[in-house]
Amino acid sequence: MPRAIVLNPADNVATLLDAGQAGEACALEGERQGRLVLLQDVPFGHKICIADTVEGETIVKYGQVIGRASCAVRAGEHMHVHNIESARARGDLQKG
C-alpha cells in the first residue's frame, strides 16, 4: 500500500512516499493515521488532498501556508500546480 506522510496536524495535504494508482488505498503516516482512497494516479513525492477543500482555501504543509486552492478539491485527489497556486512574488497579478 502506498504511504502518504502528513507532516503537521494542521496540514490538509499529504506527500506520497510511493507512487499510487487511482482506486488504491494509501496509508496515512506521520501526524495523521488512517487510510484514504486515491481518486487519481499520483507520482512518487507528489501531494494528495486529505480534506475536502473549497476554491481559495489556504493549503497547509509543514503547518505553514504553501498557497491556495485554485478550485475545489476532494480528499484523495492529486494536489499540484493544477489546483494549488502560489500567493507570493506574483508579478503577473500586478498587470493592469
Partner: peptide, 25 residues
C-alpha cells in the same frame, strides 16, 4: 513583481515541479 512576471514559471523550476514541489512557499 516589478518585472511583471509570473515567477511560478521558474520558481519552482520545471524539474522541481516534476518532483512534486508546487509553490515557492
Amino acid at each position: 513583481i516589478s518585472r511583471g512576471v509570473d515567477m511560478r514559471e521558474d520558481q519552482p523550476s520545471p524539474d522541481n515541479k516534476r518532483g512534486g514541489l508546487t509553490t515557492v512557499e
